[in-house]
Nucleic acid binder design. Structure first.
Length: 604
RNA sequence: GGGGGCGUAGCUCAAUUGGUUAGAGUCCCAGAUUGUCGAUCUGGUUGUUGCGGGUUCGAGUCCCGUCGCUCCCGCCA
């Protein structure tokens, strides 16, 4: 007989009754009847009830075993009598009658209950190895593994091969903050962890590999959010040669539709996913990652208000403000407090105000109705599709502010009115992103996305158009209001790239210096290529219907980018620092600002 | 860097308007208990109310500061 187990804790059924079996696992629950002891034994696969009879020599020892200790039990598998069957357990028709019992590892009392959902998160993170024993989290990590496996399989089936790329590479000036790794051999020089394998995957295309994918670790030193883990995250990194945008879309639609259909119970939008130009998304949804489950679409009504009697809007429009309508069906019967609170909320997120009109009882009511002529009201009614009982809210401000605030209000209305379509994943592509945007802070034109994207119209557009009107072959895939991934048709022409960077204020030698490999490679025969990188963590998060990304990562860092279990980051020895030619220059600590800075030591 | 929320026993929570010695469940410890499956019953231990200061006759409660966690903004080509 095997030393630890003949079966797992999840597989025994009535058919094996009478057999001699051995199980190993954790003591999940104990029910001590004094002259009879039940132990629910748990492993990765399930739960099996062990019975210890009072005449066994190890009975008292078994009574004293603490929860979560690891034991090995040998005995005869017995069918339970009908009245003692537990229909809630897959193994509920049998139990293991212990003939011998070995404690492999006695557990200390736990810092929190494994059954308890509400343990404080810092405690869960510090004892993540315990937290991971909890069924829900355990299942999510298993699901993550299954999702990744399925993705690899689907990509292989579509003709892709997985290639690895370096983790220690060089820092590049664009994008997020880099994680840096000092070089011992080259004093004063640093490696950077890749923010993504962007340049490597493009180089693989230049090397002729044609169809690349990788479940790639990406490292960005940026602050966390609920859906953004600090430190590292994983992407399904994809790159293809000799393709057009639609080829990328088709591959991604196959993967995403496949994964979401296989692993989720919700319905999934059929491919091809809806395509929405960036400008249209910003107007209709106030966002470049619209939640299409909410049946509210904004409408531009600037022209109707341009010459109206509502002076507040008219004056603002003269100062280049726009007016957007948020039409909402069937809420005229809401109490006054509903509207007051919404106005208050709008102001709290930066709105100057929130006007609205109510179509009720055959007339138009609301704070601004008296300023508008019948023809203007009629125009608003038809433009916004208003009927009896409907309400339209108006927001007037500069376009950026209007988009941000109406986009926020749309999400809030959808949630508060319970109008988010349940049980479905609504996918879309956002396409035609602008190539550049104007950076108000530095008063200059900058890339709005990936600088390696191909501008629509190529060199001609770069030479002749106002940069802010140039679109890029740049696209995002979005699901239920969450950006799952971003990609682009790459710019494989050095001449176009130099021009594109020049517009964003980069001298040619600066471009050469920052991207030497890629630019150089482009001069030796570069295939047109394109790619994308959907986020794995976010995918799994959505499949589990979790709002926090830490819930789908086995060993996540906390919001301040600390691993509380491993105590990372931590101090290193002076010897290590000396080898790296590094001397610390620490800021004064906050607790004791008056004490002089400690000797730059870093012991540990 | 900025804003919001939270912080009471190992864990989950309670504590009237600022008013007695801060309670309950769970865990843990001891005992009882032969069919439970969140077993049950009896008894017991467990507190710098995050920390520091202030107001007050009196602070878990009010005020100020600070620390920690978290959500958001900035940031995330």
């Amino acid at each position: 007989m095997h030393g630890y187990r003949t079966h797992t804790c999840g597989e025994l059924r009535g058919e094996q009754a009478g057999q001699e079996v051995r199980l190993s696992g954790w003591v999940f629950r104990k029910r001590d009847h004094g002259s009879l002891l039940f132990i629910d034994l748990r492993d990765h696969y399930g739960l099996t009830q062990v019975v210890v009879q009072p005449d066994r020599s190890f009975f008292e020892h078994a009574q004293s075993i603490r929860l979560e200790s690891v034991i090995t039990v040998t005995g005869r598998l017995a069918a339970r009598s009908p009245e003692t069957v537990n229909p809630d357990m897959p193994t509920g028709t049998v139990e293991l009658v212990a003939e011998s019992l070995e404690v492999d590892s006695m557990a200390d009392p736990l810092p929190f209950h494994l059954s308890d959902e509400d343990a404080p998160e810092d405690l869960r993170l510090r004892y993540r190895f315990l937290d991971l024993r909890r069924q829900e989290l355990h299942d999510r990590i298993v699901l993550r593994s299954d999702v990744i496996h399925h993705i690899r399989q689907t990509m292989r089936e579509q003709g892709f091969k997985e290639y690895q790329t370096p983790i220690l590479t060089s820092s590049s000036p664009e994008g997020a903050r880099d994680y840096l790794v000092p070089s011992r051999v080259h004093p004063g020089k640093f490696y950077a962890l890749p923010q993504s394998p962007q340049q490597f995957k493009q180089l693989l295309m230049l090397s002729g590999f044609d169809r690349y994918f990788q479940i790639a670790a990406c490292f960005r030193d940026e602050d966390a959010r609920a859906d953004r883990s600090p430190g590292e995250h994983y992407q399904l990194d994809v790159e293809m040669s000799f393709v057009e945008q639609d080829d990328i879309f088709k591959v991604v639609e196959t993967v995403l539709h496949g994964v979401f259909s296989k692993f989720a119970t919700w319905k999934v939008d059929a491919a091809p996913f809806r395509r929405i130009p960036y400008r249209e998304a910003m107007l209709k949804y106030g966002s470049d990652k619209p939640d299409l489950r909410i049946p509210i679409e904004m409408v531009d009504v600037t022209d109707i208000f341009r010459n109206s009697g509502f002076n507040a809007f008219r004056a603002a429009i003269e100062q280049k403000a726009v007016v957007r309508a948020i039409p909402v069906k069937a809420i005229a019967d809401r109490p006054r407090s509903f509207f007051d609170k919404l106005v208050e909320y709008a102001q709290s997120i930066g709105a100057k105000g929130l006007a609205y009109l109510v179509w009720e009882g055959g007339v138009v009511k609301g704070p601004i109705a008296k300023f508008l002529k019948p023809a203007e009201l009629e125009a608003l009614r038809t433009t916004c599709g208003m009927g009896e009982g409907d309400v339209v809210f108006f927001m007037c401000d500069k376009e950026g502010a209007v988009n941000r605030i109406t986009g926020d209000l749309r999400l809030k209305l959808g949630r508060d009115l319970d109008r988010v379509e349940p049980g479905i994943y609504r996918f879309c592509w956002i396409v035609d992103f602008p190539m550049y945007e104007f950076d108000e802070e530095n008063k200059q034109v900058m890339f709005s996305h990936n600088p390696f994207s191909m501008p629509q119209g190529g060199l001609k557009a770069l030479s002749e158009q106002d940069p802010l009107t140039i679109l890029a072959y740049q696209y995002d895939v979005v699901c239920n209001g969450i950006e799952l991934g971003s990609g682009a048709i790459r710019n494989h022409r050095p001449d176009i790239m130099m021009k594109a960077f020049a517009i964003a204020g980069y001298e040619p030698d600066a471009v050469e210096r920052n991207f030497p490999a890629l630019l150089n490679a482009f001069r030796y025969g570069a295939p047109p290529h394109a790619g994308i990188a959907p986020g794995i963590d976010r995918m799994v998060m959505m499949l589990c219907d979790q709002s926090n990304i830490r819930e789908v990562i086995a060993f996540p860092m906390n919001q301040r980018a600390q691993d509380l279990m491993m105590n990372a980051p931590n101090e290193v020895s002076i010897k290590q620092l000396r080898e790296l030619h590094i001397r610390l220059n620490l800021p004064p600590t906050k607790e004791a600002p008056k004490t002089p800075p400690a000797e730059p030591s870093g012991k540990g």
